[in-house]
């Protein structure tokens, strides 16, 4: 374990697996482009990000994004450009507005409701009584028939 950690520590971060013919010269810009690629859908593929796809569409969009990043535009600007061109469907992360709020909040709402229900269940509790003599007798009868 320790050996492995040290071995890993010795490594520098290696160039990404992007196509060498497409790569930007500036590593920082390239890293930003790669991060964006993971959030952009390849519209003609089956549920793939353009980062993973070999389709022409993905290649074209990668090129456009790299051009825009090289031209100094921010991530937000690039995303706006993409949604203007292809609609919201092109981004893998739904916007935090409008109807999508229901999507973002529903799981946390379940957490909240569950928590409230648990509190209510815990609050109205009574101490359980010990077995009454009659119950003890009935129980003894039931367990005895078993041994017989």
């Amino acid at each position: 374990m320790k050996r492995l950690l040290i071995a890993l520590a010795a490594l520098a971060c290696i160039a990404a697996a992007s196509d060498p013919s497409e790569r930007l010269a500036d590593p920082a810009q390239e890293a930003r482009a790669r991060a964006l690629f993971k959030e952009v859908r390849c519209l003609i593929c089956q549920n793939e990000a353009i980062d993973d796809s070999t389709a022409d569409f993905a290649k074209d969009v990668r090129l456009v994004i790299r051009e825009q990043i090289a031209a100094g535009r921010s991530d937000v600007q690039v995303k706006d450009f993409l949604t203007d061109r292809y609609g919201e469907y092109v981004l893998f992360r739904p916007s935090l507005s409008g109807a999508n709020l229901a999507l973002w909040t529903a799981p946390f709402l379940v957490l909240l409701i569950g928590g409230v229900l648990l509190m209510m269940r815990l609050r109205n509790r009574a101490t359980p009584e010990a077995l009454s003599p009659e119950e003890e007798a009935a129980l003894a009868r039931l367990t005895r028939t078993d041994d017989a």
Binding site: P128, L131, E135, A138, L139
Partner: peptide, 13 residues
């Protein structure tokens, strides 16, 4: 033990 017995016992009954 007593409490657990009371509960399980009632369920049996």
């Amino acid at each position: 033990q007593a409490q657990a017995r009371a509960e399980a016992g009632r369920r049996l009954l």
